[in-house]
Computed example of a mutant assay.
Amino acid sequence: MSLTERLLAADERLERLAAAPQDGPRILFFSGGTALREACAELIKYTWNSVHIVTPFDSGGSSAELRREFDMPAVGDARNRILALADPKETQAFAAAEFLASRLPREGGNEALRELATQIARGAHPGMSGLSESTAAVIKDSMTLFLDSCSERFNFSGASIGNMVLTAMYLRHERATAPAIDEFSALVAARGTVRMVLDAPLDLKVHLEDGKTVVGQHRITGKTEAPISSRVSHLRLHRDGVTVARRETRIEGEVRALITDADMICYPVGSFFSSIVANLLPGGVPDSVAANACPKVFVPNLGLDPELVGMSLTDQVNALIEYLRNGAIVRAGGTYLDGVIIDPEAHYPGDVDCAYLESLGLEIVEAPLLDREQGLVAAVPLIRTLMAISC
């Protein structure tokens, strides 16, 4: 049955999934931390088994300060996705999620801000008043460990409370991200599995067609610094001034199993290079994708992505396939991409070249995705479409 044919039975399938989300499909997303924030609230209505492979390469904000302090992967994307998956029906856990989503003020001096962090460690912070005793105890213990571990020079300005708690869990679990993420997820009743694609403190480096290079995820996205002005030629992983070879960045066995066991793989909306392609760079990812016979779909952006300078929809599809193909060791006879989900009423850069996409063996799945007020992919129809076409 084609992906489009599955959409015809969407209402019946969605009703069945909503009745038992604990048995829902294992849809795997390669993404960053923020793009699917609203979509996750819809996603958990239909499945508690989604998998989110996120990047650990953030080089700005609170994550950057933690990376400098502890020489660790960036936890911000993982924290963001876990909180987005928090179950609002679990009132105590959701209260914890709301508190962990907050930040310390940016102003006030570092000594005063450290004192606010100390209030959390004591359970005296006003934002903790609605937390259960057991939840508050975990947060207090984590913040105590964090304060004992960080140096006097640590900058608390605008620090994410969730990032600090997750960092403490990472340190408690002997600098392993998976058990720390699981502990943090349990604290907020997250309905899904989140993993970093790599458990290593690396950076992104882009080579632009105008000959320039840019190092650091926050310098690529165009969110906090001026956007790149030339088309991306290629993206690499970087550490201490040196490009890191793919063979030195192979994914762990658990991440490999999550990819090979998924019921559907989605390359969703989001920052194209720093969120999606970045997840495809480590060794083992392409082979794991190809080894899985499940459907693989791409949902291109409708809004402006500053990373896509001069790139059409066709260019984006070609880039996805090429990064996966070039990174593969053994293709295992599988595919890297099977379908592209588009809204026929929306505009895509370079338009939709149906003949070319179909010549690649791709199915074009048409669905009403556009939020006309914002000009973006709307969360509800996106998730309903993915649920309908999943295995």
Rank of each mutant, 00 (worst) to 15 (best):
G339V: 03
F29H: 12
L131C: 13
M143L: 15
A189R: 04
I342Q: 00
G60F: 05
Y170P: 07
D371C: 11
L360S: 00
A293W: 04
S160D: 09
H234R: 04
I181T: 00
L382W: 10
K205S: 14
S312C: 02
M128Y: 00
V277E: 12
E209F: 02
C40Q: 12
T243N: 13
A328I: 05
G310M: 02
L7H: 01
R106P: 07
R81L: 04
N292K: 07
S31I: 11
D87G: 14
A84M: 00
D353S: 04
V188F: 08
I251N: 12
K223M: 11
R191V: 02
A367D: 08
A84G: 00
A355G: 12
I181L: 15
P201H: 01
Y170F: 15
A35I: 13
S359Y: 08
R236F: 14
L308E: 12
T224V: 04
A74H: 07
K212C: 05
I251W: 14
G350Y: 00
M72T: 14
A262E: 01
F30N: 05
S62N: 09
E174L: 15
T335N: 14
S274Q: 09
S151T: 14
S288K: 13
P88W: 03
V352S: 06
A97Q: 05
P368Q: 13
M311E: 09
T55R: 05
D351Y: 14
S271V: 13
R103C: 07
R103G: 03
R195C: 08
E307C: 05
S233F: 01
R6T: 07
L304Y: 11
F94A: 11
T47N: 09
T91W: 03
I44N: 02
A189V: 06
D141C: 01
H52T: 01
E133C: 04
R106A: 13
L324F: 00
I276L: 14
V277S: 09
A378D: 12
I321V: 06
T224G: 05
L308Q: 03
H125Y: 13
E363H: 04
P126H: 11
S157Y: 04
T34D: 11
D351G: 10
A124Y: 07
G162M: 10
T385A: 00
G162Y: 04
V188A: 07
R172K: 15
K296S: 01
A18D: 08
I120Y: 10
A35K: 06
L83P: 05
T260L: 11
K223Q: 10
R247M: 12
A93T: 06
A41F: 09
R81G: 03
P88R: 12
P306T: 06
A78M: 13
A367S: 15
I120F: 11
A200R: 15
P282K: 08
G162S: 14
E209G: 00
N301G: 00
V51E: 14
F273C: 13
L281D: 07
